[in-house]
Design a protein around this nucleic acid. Sequence first.
DNA 1: CAGTATCCGCGGAGATACTG
DNA 2: CAGTATCTCCGCGGATACTG
Lengths: 105, 105
Amino acid sequence: MAPRKNFQHLDHRLADALEVMGEWWTPLIIMAVSSGAFRFESIQNSLGIARNILTDRLNTLVAGGVLEKRMYTEKPERYEYHLTAKGLELVPILQDLERWGTRHN
Amino acid sequence: MAPRKNFQHLDHRLADALEVMGEWWTPLIIMAVSSGAFRFESIQNSLGIARNILTDRLNTLVAGGVLEKRMYTEKPERYEYHLTAKGLELVPILQDLERWGTRHN
DNA sequence: CAGTATCCGCGGAGATACTG
DNA sequence: CAGTATCTCCGCGGATACTG
């Protein structure tokens, strides 16, 4: 479930960041959450990502401390996904990347 | 050869950047080149990436205008890979990502 | 609505051997 | 030294159906 890469031979620190951020959808999910899509269906609709992949990416991001689950209903238990402090620091970086892509097209 | 993703339904501009940067090895290759590994063997050795994948990524990066080939020997034809202006703009962004990963570990 | 469960295809990635 | 050529494995990602 949690995607694991084997880069022990690479002590490159960028590789550590890519361990969490390396999957294609991950940056898009983070930007979706940062723009107000906190719930599963909401993220899924705004991105069109497959549901099983979204489940996997959300779990990985929670495990990596980028997102945190916040219960908003007890019965039944329902969670929203919010950026942690660590996740919030990622947003401006992704915006830079976005601008870079926009600048050169 | 050139990896192609289908995200026409996503007009998200970040997706355009990820079209070039989305593959796992790509950021590491860019940082390797930016730190002086200009030649095939040199990049390959410093990263430990499979040769066929490196060939593919280099072609994609050249096609995407991030790297450019520079001939340094005529017989036989040998090329170095250097960052373009567009590629150079990526470096500080990747350094930010690197610092982000380092900060939270 | 928020997931979980399957099934499947494709391509990323590794390993290795070969060529100019 | 700089690739190209194969072969194989595996996991991402898509699609869809199902559950509480």
